[in-house]
């Protein structure tokens, strides 16, 4: 689904990532770790065509990311649900409208029952009419997850989704991601929360990728 081959990325001040080779197989669950500033967000941006590799090749659903036209990028993003590190919403529209935004922009009608069920599932049923600026960090992260899955995407990428959550809320979000993976979704979570990774490994077979020395390596089982 997502394939990295000898990928390098350079913002202009030297290569941040080099020689990245990785294949996200359907139904897999990956964690991506590494110190702050290592390039986790950059890696994810390469995976949803926000950035194009400066070396090597990223293949998204069988197509070279570099050859994607602007509309192709839009179509690709409909198949990849992303929970961004800084969850951005349309602040003037209520939560429910924000969650269904991916459907709105591609002209699909929303199903009210599905939406209600989804909001219940992420624990935001009572906040459907709230405006995003009034939400707490954890509520925003869960709203972002709901928005990421509403299109029933094949892949879900989450960038430090528990970054500003307490442990209980982190566990809850992890549970949601694990459930999605059990439903067959391919999941990649960037985090530097080792406890979260241990907790996940007790529930499923997750692989851990670590960014070190500009390379993305498969970490051992010694976590």
């Amino acid at each position: 689904m997502i394939l990295f081959e000898n990928v390098g990325y350079n913002y202009g001040g030297g290569e941040l990532l080099s020689d990245v080779a990785l294949r996200l197989a359907p139904g897999s669950f990956h964690f991506l770790t590494g110190p702050s500033g290592a390039g986790k967000t950059t890696f994810l941006k390469l995976a949803y065509a926000e950035l194009r590799p400066t070396a090597g090749q990223v293949t998204l659903f069988g197509r070279d990311a570099r050859t994607l036209a602007r509309d192709d990028v839009a179509l690709t993003r409909r198949r990849i649900g992303v929970v961004h590190q800084d969850c951005q919403f349309l602040d003037h529209l209520p939560l429910a409208t924000n969650v269904t935004l991916p459907l709105t922009v591609c002209g699909k009608p929303g199903n009210t029952q599905d939406l209600t069920a989804l909001l219940e599932w992420v624990g935001l049923g009572k906040l459907a009419d709230a405006l995003p600026p009034s939400l707490s960090g954890g509520e925003r992260q869960r709203a972002a997850l709901a928005r990421a899955v509403i299109m029933d995407p094949d892949v879900i990428l989450a960038d430090e989704p528990t970054g500003n959550l307490d442990w209980e809320m982190s566990l809850r979000l992890l549970t949601l991601l694990v459930e999605l993976n059990r439903m067959g979704k391919t999941i990649l979570v960037a985090t530097h929360d080792m406890n979260l990774i241990r907790q996940a490994k007790s529930q499923l077979a997750a692989r851990v990728l670590r960014i070190a020395n500009r390379r993305v390596q498969l970490a051992g089982a010694d976590l």
């Binding site: 839009a74 993003r77 951005q88 922009v105 928005r147």
Partner: peptide
């Protein structure tokens, strides 16, 4: 930016 991230085409 938000619209692009959730998959909106330019034309939209």
């Amino acid at each position: 930016r938000v619209l692009r991230l959730v998959g909106a085409k330019d034309s939209y």
